[in-house]
């Protein structure tokens, strides 16, 4: 019975068409209302007093510092994430070991934990009154309310992105090409660079894009550990909030438009990748 139902072309199941049109219209309407409209509002507000005001808002030293900090944190987080992601995916996809499913679940942990809690954990660990706090203070290392804390919090929150993208990809691709490379006399290093990396490059790039977008946009975890020192420990999202709370709406939206622009670039790049390499992207859409 089921196969007969499946055999019916979808168009004929909704032959009269109005159901289709109504559903499409509803979906599009909601998209415009909830996604496009807010984005438009951001842009309108940002340019509310003209381009000059927009540029001035971005040229503010505190804002520039926030942009620099955000980029700095993102670069470190993405780089570490790539290393961790490849190592984790390699070990999960290539080897059978006890506790493998536990490890995979653990990788997902940052997705299931609220970012605020992630930030609080950092404070409990590295803060002045945290477990490692006194030890760090004796050595004159400040983690919380400083850049290291922001980097750590961002790494924690973005940890799963590359690994999650690569694990199914590498499991599906198997290790035969690597075995072939080794049988042809390649060293482990040369096999990795000449065979493994090219095999996973598109999936890797996709993971990097998602990771980067999240690293730049993260608010909750970073907010807890940053200490909100203007011009020092405020990232772009924090700066947006700070400006907004100071009733500098236009400046807030100017910074917000930069963040939104970044999100758009990421989306477009993602779309391009997906259309060019559909088989190689497992499209972790559930995030």
């Amino acid at each position: 019975m089921a196969t007969e139902t499946l055999g019916v072309p979808i168009s004929s199941m909704y032959a009269n068409g109005w159901v289709r049109h109504a559903l499409t219209a509803a979906a599009l309407g909601l998209m415009v209302l909830f996604l496009l409209l807010p984005l438009a509002v951001v842009l309108v507000q940002a340019f509310g007093s003209g381009v000059g005001a927009y540029v001035d808002a971005l040229a503010d030293p505190d804002t520039l510092s926030a942009i620099r900090l955000t980029l700095f944190v993102a670069v470190i987080a993405v780089a570490l994430n790539v290393m961790f992601g490849i190592a984790a995916a390699w070990c999960v996809a290539r080897f059978e070991f006890r506790g493998k499913s536990f490890l995979v679940t653990l990788i997902d942990l940052p997705f299931s934990i609220s970012p605020v809690i992630a930030g609080l954990c950092q404070v409990m660990l590295f803060g002045l009154h945290g477990w490692l706090g006194p030890w760090l203070r004796d050595r004159d290392v400040q983690v919380i309310f400083a850049t290291p804390g922001i980097v750590l919090a961002t790494i924690f929150v973005t940890l799963p992105f590359v690994a999650r993208e690569l694990i199914p990809l590498m499991e599906e691709q198997g290790a035969e090409e690597e075995e072939a490379a080794v049988s042809l006399g390649a060293s482990g290093w040369s096999t990795f660079w000449r065979v493994t990396i090219p095999k996973i490059r598109w999936g890797l790039l996709y993971g990097v894009l998602l990771c980067n977008a999240r690293a730049m946009g993260e608010f909750g975890a970073v907010s807890v550990v940053s200490g909100h020192i203007r011009g020092a420990t405020d990232t772009m999202p924090l700066q947006v909030e700070a400006l907004f709370n100071d009733y500098q709406t236009e400046a807030a939206f100017a910074v917000a438009s930069l963040l939104a622009g970044l999100a758009l670039v990421t989306l477009v790049a993602k779309l391009l990748l997906e259309s060019r390499f559909p088989d190689e992207l497992t499209a972790t859409h559930r995030f």
Partner: peptide, 25 residues
């Protein structure tokens, strides 16, 4: 010289580069 059941050719390399691989490494 090992020939795999599913060939295991390097998918991102041309035929020429596949054959040359063992000489290049």
């Amino acid at each position: 010289g090992f020939v795999f059941q599913h060939y295991a050719l390097f998918r991102h390399m041309t035929v020429f580069e596949n054959v040359a691989f063992g000489l290049r490494v």
